[in-house]
Structure formats: C-alpha cells, structure tokens
C-alpha cells in the first residue's frame, strides 16, 4: 500500500484528465541540526490533480512544502519539476518557474489593501522600468491596467469584490485566507501549494474554501498540493493522498485506500511506535 499509486495519465470519475508527472520528489531528507524533519520521502504530483499531504502535527508537512518551493534545501534527494532536476533552488526562482503558495499562518502584506496584495502576486510578471514607472504613463500605465484586469478576475472568482480597497490587516481571518489564495492565484501558477488553507475556519468558511479549491482545479486546471488536517475535507477534495508521520512516508494512494490503511489509523490515533 505504501507503494506509489498509479501515475499513468488517466481520467478521473468527474472527467478531469490527469497528465504526466509535474513534480517528482525522490528520497528527500531534511535535517535541522539534530532533528530530522523529513526522512527519505519520495512521491510525485501529477499534472492537474489535487494532491493532499496529511499527517499529525510535526510530521514534516510544512517542511515538505518549503522544500518544494526552495525555502528549505534538503540534505539528500532530488526534485524534478517540469522535467528539470535540481537539488536546490532559491524561492524566487521557484516563483519564476510557476510555483506559488499560501502559508499556514497567513503571510499577507498587512498594511496593503486586498487589491494591492493580489496585485503583489503579479510582481514577477510586471517589467516596465523605473523611468516609465516614474511617469506612470504610456507602457507603465498600460501594464498596470492590464494586470489590474487579471487581478479583478481573481477578485470576482473568489467573491471578494466588497473588500477590494480594505487594508487586509482589518479583515477577519477567514477572509485573509481567501485573499492569500487570491494572491497566489494572481501569479497564474503551474503548481499551487496550500498549507492548511482551512485551519481556524468555521464550517461555512471551510465549505466556501473547498469550493474555491475545487473550482481552481477544475476551471483553471491548476495542479494543487495541499496540507490539511480534516480527513473529511481531504476525502472530498483530494485525488491522491500522501501520509507523513515523524518525517517518514507511511502511506500514499487514493483517499479511501489511505483511510483504511492500518499504519495511517495508528498514526492518527496515536499508537506508540
């Protein structure tokens, strides 16, 4: 059961096509001094799927996302993204190659409005130089407006028109999480990483967020890797699930397979190792 699930391109029950492997992680080991946060973990993410990473607190899930987007550099292992293998990369190269993410604790720009936060997500796509920016005229203004149009699409999509001009620091937590998703989407990522997108939300907010995640995946065709605690949510959203426990991979497969796996049940019930 802990073998990697089928990775051939296939069509899911709801008709989405899952393509080839977008990201392949091989034998990743990450240590902090004496602490081994991730130990020899391999798994992959297929084009078009929603891949969940689950596991108890401290299992190494966030560390895994940090490895994927270059924030942490694993001591061992290799990462292949879009056919290119590397052992380390800088976060901003990851952003450049189409990986964007949200954070477990919201990491928005608190003093900026919703609009500016989401515009910030397009930072990499804007290139008009300093001189044009000084004049805010011609190409610089055209560029600003073109990107504003894209950002407004994201705002419509996430139904946050009413808070467009509100500084995000004044928004409730649930909405901040949504704005953060918007900022990540504004970069039009090839791979979207979500670290506990529903943590701290009430049931209604969770349902909204689930719907947005499914819509992003289905309508925009974005590949998503997400960390989530709530098993019910994972069952509903994920195509495949990888389970970590104490930095090791203990299961990998379809949600229902994983759910009935004895090692997973033990880990979640806290059976001593």
């Amino acid at each position: 059961m802990s073998a990697t699930a089928a990775v051939r391109p296939h069509v899911t029950e709801d008709g989405r096509e899952l393509g080839e492997v977008l990201m392949d992680l091989r034998n990743i080991t990450l240590r902090f001094g004496g602490v081994t946060a991730i130990k020899d973990v391999s798994f992959n993410i297929q084009q078009g799927e929603i891949r969940a990473i689950i596991g108890p607190n401290g299992a190494g899930k966030t560390s895994m996302l940090n490895v994927i987007n270059g924030f942490y550099h694993p001591q061992e292992g290799s990462i292949t993204f879009r056919g290119e293998t590397r052992s380390r990369m800088r976060p901003h190269d990851a952003a450049r190659q189409g990986i964007s993410r949200t954070f477990q604790n919201v990491a928005l720009f608190q003093g900026m409005t919703t609009l500016d936060n989401i515009m910030a997500g397009r930072a990499l796509k804007m290139r008009r130089n300093f001189l044009w920016q000084m004049l805010r005229y011609g190409p610089a203004l055209e560029e600003e407006i073109e990107h504003r149009r894209k950002v407004e699409e994201v705002i419509d999509f996430l139904e946050i028109e009413h808070i467009r001009k509100t500084p995000v620091g004044r928004l409730p937590y649930g909405l901040q999480k949504r704005v953060e998703l918007g900022r990540a989407l504004a970069a039009e990522p090839a791979l979207l990483l979500l670290d506990e997108p529903m943590a701290g939300m009430n049931v209604e907010e969770k349902e909204d967020m689930s719907r947005f995640i499914l819509d992003v995946n289905e309508q925009l065709g974005t590949t998503i890797a997400l960390i989530e605690h709530d098993m019910g949510v994972v069952m509903d959203l994920a195509d495949r699930v990888v389970v970590l426990d104490y930095g090791r991979k203990i299961a990998d497969g379809k949600p229902d397979e994983v759910q009935s796996d004895q090692a997973v049940i033990d880990a979640y019930l806290g059976v001593p190792h």
């Binding site: 901003h92 952003a95 450049r96 964007s100 720009f109 900026m112 930072a123 990499l124």
Partner: peptide, 15 residues
C-alpha cells in the same frame, strides 16, 4: 511595501 510588511513573503513571491 511588500518588503515593509513581510520581507520573507515578498521574496517568495519574487521581489
């Protein structure tokens, strides 16, 4: 402003 509010997130986004 991104650097001011959260420099790490700014860098991850590509600033």
């Amino acid at each position: 402003m991104m650097i001011r509010d959260m420099d790490i997130a700014a860098e991850l986004i590509g600033v």
